[in-house]
């Protein structure tokens, strides 16, 4: 693969990168797309690209695309350039690049002559797809999602992503607010929805080792979250994550801030999927990290 010059035409280009797994990137970005039209802020650095999405100061989603995910990653900026763009358009646009049975190599370049994000397919000389996405100056609001552990020992549990999604989907029926409680004795996690009726879902740690992969809690904590925001954290988990039996990590921080982390595979579809791979450790280079922060409801 020839790497193209990062300084085409003498204009300063902050980033030129190439990717050979468009579908994986679409999956990763779709997992934080909880509305059709949604704005995102992208931040690029020598380590990779981070996309941040936010809703009414209560919910934030982040996608970390590390530089290892790209086959070429040439970063030449000072500081960490940030720009705003429409997440929906970015995903729909990436989708046009992926054709069934063919995984093209695409080049992403920023900024274009008019500060656009430029994309083009580079693997076929006779058929090329290209896109220019208008970017905007990102909002300067401070992102108030400083996550700090609640005590010396983080209060956290890891559960299979499919189980977490199923539980949250089930809680849609009572709707309204969902109370999440972790208690050390007996070690368990409880989701309780109280609205049109009430529904309680309990994950006892010892009863079923398949349910909770990890559990850590030295004192009982309990916080309420709006269902709307909690639902957004799992509503668009790519089906690959569920099939590959991956785990999601849920942590409750100081003040009841909820952090949910998923791992999304970003790799060429040609690679046969290894079954029963729960850790995915051997493929960490091909993982996009997804993080959600949900602010608790104040009582």
């Amino acid at each position: 693969m020839s790497s193209s010059s990062g300084r085409a035409g003498g204009d300063a280009t902050d980033l030129v990168c190439q990717l050979d797994c468009v579908q994986g990137m679409v999956d990763a970005l779709s997992s934080v797309r909880w509305k059709r039209h949604q704005d995102a802020v992208a931040e690029i650095s020598e380590h990779g690209i981070v996309l941040i999405v936010e809703d009414t100061g209560c919910l934030q989603g982040k996608v970390y695309l590390k530089r290892e995910l790209f086959i070429v990653y040439e970063y030449a900026a000072e500081g960490r350039p940030r720009f705003g763009l429409s997440l929906g358009l970015f995903v729909d646009c990436l989708n046009t690049f992926s054709t069934p049975g063919h995984s093209p190599v695409i080049e992403i370049r920023y900024p274009g002559p008019d500060m656009q994000l430029l994309l083009k397919s580079v693997d076929s000389p006779d058929a090329c797809i290209y896109a220019e996405i208008r970017t905007r100056i990102p909002d300067t609001i401070s992102w108030g999602y400083n996550f700090e552990p609640a005590g010396n020992i983080p209060v956290t549990f890891t559960v299979r992503s499919a189980v977490l999604k199923e539980a949250i989907d089930d809680l849609e029926w009572p709707g309204s607010n969902i109370q999440i409680t972790l208690q050390p004795d007996p070690p368990s996690v409880t989701f309780r929805g109280d609205g049109h009726g009430d529904l309680q879902i309990e994950f006892p740690y010892h009863a079923n080792t398949d349910l909770l992969i990890a559990f850590q809690c030295d004192h009982a904590v309990s916080h309420r979250f709006k269902y709307k925001f909690l639902g957004a954290t799992t509503s668009n988990i790519p089906s690959g994550v569920l099939k590959e039996n991956r785990g999601s990590k849920v942590t409750i921080g100081r003040g009841g801030m909820l952090k949910i982390q998923h791992l999304v595979s970003v790799r060429r579809p040609a690679t046969p999927h290894s079954r029963g791979d729960t850790s995915g450790l051997q493929q960490l280079g091909h993982i996009a990290y997804i993080e959600f922060f949900v602010k608790p409801e104040e009582d």
């Binding site: 429409s86 358009l89 646009c93 046009t96 058929a127 220019e132």
Partner: peptide
């Protein structure tokens, strides 16, 4: 559109 141009070119 006002926010995006996406195109495809088939040559030869």
């Amino acid at each position: 559109t006002s926010l995006i141009n996406v195109g495809s070119e088939f040559r030869r």
